[in-house]
Write a protein that binds this DNA or RNA. Structure first.
Lengths: 338, 338
DNA sequence: GGCCTCTACTGAACCGTTACCGTCGCGGAC
DNA sequence: GTCCGCGACGGTAACGGTTCAGTAGAGGCC
């Protein structure tokens, strides 16, 4: 019996008589044939049926960040709709081991918020498959980009804080380099950050403060490598400890802001009466605690990234999608005490 | 130049002289050869370099469940350590479309908490690759199993509640069938549940209540299809509305318990003075709100599942691992008012 | 009966690698 | 001078499918 007939029995039931098909399947069952091999099929059809995802860091890290999980959810949703798998590519955190990218049998890649100069990104671009980059500007041609306008969003938040009357403002931000650094970050360190998202948020903030004449060089910025509530606590401690007169703490993520709130609570500092605290992302928890923040559509971002990758008809020109953000003014921000 | 040499240039630098290798790579670059094709390589080496994961339902659903996210994190961690990818297999929620399982190019599968009779599970077992099943007993030979003892864990919780003196107890549980059903669930409906986890927790509870002479047939059990805080709220509303005399509400998940707490708060019912509420899972949020619950090591579960799949030396006999759980007594449980 | 069409099935060519083994040239030992 | 060993590289055959271009036979039509 010919191989073609077997193939048809599995893939094109209408191409052969039901009884022959039945006979083929029974025989296969009897002989312990497990059905067509997916890899061989992929080789021949030149379709892997899956999308590769490169996450920032150690995978485990991403799963603790609600924004990343939301993104993942949206992306998974898009893949599911298209019947495509989603392959989490193992990115060794420190190593330059790009082999995993080369070994990924996928029809396209989504790169989520990687440091600018990451070798993995380079490896992805070498691969002859379409790619969508998230939260990262791409000078590279032929690559779709989806993200938000971090600069403008943070500018809006800065204006809100300034309009309330705050002039003594401190900042807590996420990691700026791949190397661990916990402490105050100078303007040149900020400018040299590997992470586009953090850079943009800081420059947005800077622009906002400049509008009311504040000198960015005098604004204390505390950086934390870990992105956890605990890191937010310790950052707030360092910030308020070194600058007791601050009336507002602007954080570049909700997680860090939650930590700042927690620290204020322990200190007996009332929010917002004594201190204004703001975040960024709009995670679920932020609403519950009344955190003023910028909501960004993380789930939508993932979904759009997936669709951009999968729905490309014969589209050739790369697209750049900027999703809207929304300033969420809640109860953690108020005018400073006179 | 022979193909073998090219292959060696990429994969076995020690097998050829540096200058030849250099020449090969340069020529490849110049000719636009993107490096060895991962799919063809997989076909030849019979290794896909990835593990497939089947999640309960629509992927998107899982990402909202902290327990599932924790599991995913642990599994991703294990895969990352082994340099393996993690493929999220798109499981169409309602459809019996098993094709995605057949098309997944993976070296093994992890099946996470699927309904007993799910056709996808059957399709996985047909595939000639090792499989690890989670939170599900497996009569099937040749399959590793990892999970917790839901029955015993819930029995422990039940004893705690009974020892406090509660006798008028209501229950809120997650979905028992794939078909949507929101409302009270009779004992036979419980017994007919497709979800082993829910079944075990309920029988554990039943056993615990039986020890103090309570008739399970008289214990109201409210089922909710959606696993959200909002569903917990509405379930608590139905439960307390129909049975005003209850002194304790036992929930089979923390998420639902959070909803019950919320509903109690809105009602002005004090916890634990007027009402005891318990959960299950031990998610982060449960600690913050002081929820009495059973902590299960979700991350560890994922990690162990991955290791079981990847580390199997020449082990043949299937293994069953039962991870420990821990009763967490917090401030949401107390003796009933006299 | 010859021609044509249609259905049901088959043969052979690829898809892009890697594993296995053979060959070739060279230097050193006897 | 011959033989052996070794390092470096090349040839060939799978790996397990799908696809495309057939072919055999049945049946309809003139």
């Amino acid at each position: 019996m010919s191989r073609t007939t077997i193939s048809n029995a599995y893939n094109r039931p209408d191409q052969l008589s039901p009884q022959l098909r039945q006979r083929v399947l029974e025989t296969a069952q009897r002989m312990g044939y497990p059905g067509p091999d997916p890899v061989a099929r992929s080789l021949r059809t030149r379709k892997a049926g899956a999308v590769g995802l490169l996450l920032t860091e150690a995978l485990s890290y991403a799963f603790r960040d609600p924004a990343a999980v939301g993104f993942l959810e949206g992306l998974a949703l898009a893949c599911e709709d298209a019947g495509q798998g989603l392959l989490l590519v193992p990115v060794s955190p420190e190593r330059t081991d790009v082999a995993a990218v080369h070994r990924a049998g996928v029809d396209g890649f989504v790169v989520y918020s990687m440091p600018d100069d990451d070798p993995h990104l380079g490896a992805v671009l070498q691969r002859p498959v379409p790619t969508v980059v998230c939260d990262q500007p791409s000078r590279i041609d032929d690559v779709d980009v989806v993200g938000i306008d971090d600069h403008a969003a943070m500018l809006g938040l800065a204006r809100h804080v300034c309009r309330l009357g705050h002039r003594r403002i401190g900042v807590i931000c996420m990691r700026l380099t791949k190397q661990r650094h916990d402490g105050f970050a100078s303007p040149q360190r900020q400018a040299g950050s590997h992470y586009h998202v953090q850079r943009s948020r800081l420059t947005g903030l800077q622009a906002g403060l400049a509008e009311v004449g504040l000198d960015w060089g005098r604004v204390p910025v505390v950086e934390r490598f870990d992105h956890t509530v605990a890191a937010g606590v310790s950052a707030a401690e360092a910030l308020l400890g070194g600058h007791p007169g601050l009336t507002a703490v602007v954080c570049t993520s909700d997680i860090l802001a939650l930590g700042a709130l927690q620290h204020a609570g322990r200190l007996g500092v009332r929010v917002p009466e004594d201190l204004t605290v703001t975040g960024f992302d709009g995670i679920t928890e932020s609403e519950r605690v009344g955190l003023t923040t910028v909501r960004q559509p993380v789930r939508e971002k993932g979904r759009v990234a997936g669709q951009l990758l999968l729905d490309r008809g014969e589209r050739v020109c790369p697209r750049t999608l900027t999703l809207p953000t929304e300033l969420q003014v809640r109860s953690s921000s108020a005018p400073p005490r006179v």
